[in-house]
Amino acid sequence: MIELKRVSFAYANEDIIRDVNLTFGPGVTVVIGPNGSGKTTLLKLAAAIYRPRVGEVLIDGVNTWSAPETVRVSVRRNVVYVHEKPIMLRGSVADNVAYGLRIRNVPDDEVATRTEEALEALGIKHLAHEKAQTLSAGQQQKVALARALAVRPKNLLLDEPIASLDKSGREIFMELLREMVRKEVCVAMATHDRLLALQLMGRTIVVENKTATLIENPERIS
């Protein structure tokens, strides 16, 4: 679970997010809002990538930014944020998927098993030895999702995860999402796709006018 308490964040001395109080709990939380409203910033604050100007970010009850570095890394490892534009490392698809496991010093045999599982879950096992940077945007999106799944996060923050996916990719993604909900993973997802937001029918956060409001019943959003 991730809690944001009275969080404000500024770029170049101008507040983008102001005095936000939110909780990302188990299940799916959809984050919507117009372009430039701060959806990505909100997710990056929740992922403890951005440090808030004021306020607290609590991951699993730990105040991330006042905790010592070792504790911060440890709690942050329960959270994975997937970028809207997938960022691929040099090397193969398998290397990319294994990256999160390697930095956690997971033993080699387990890295291989979990990498294969993640690739299979996204339907990209056949791409394992391809160079990740040469793939299409949709394929790279799947690799980024596989990389996130491989580390089995308790909290998964997704920024426009289906923007580059085709129909079958979306179906795979929806199935994975259902699986994560079953496992009580806390999923937050920024999207422009209102249909997807309604399909998920989870909690919805509307980011607008530098603030974020939680709406429990998304059907009321027109």
Binding site: I49, V80, Y81, H83, I87, G100
Partner: peptide, 8 residues
């Protein structure tokens, strides 16, 4: 940022 976001 990607590295940090995946737990580095």
């Amino acid at each position: 940022e990607m590295a940090v976001s995946i737990g580095a």
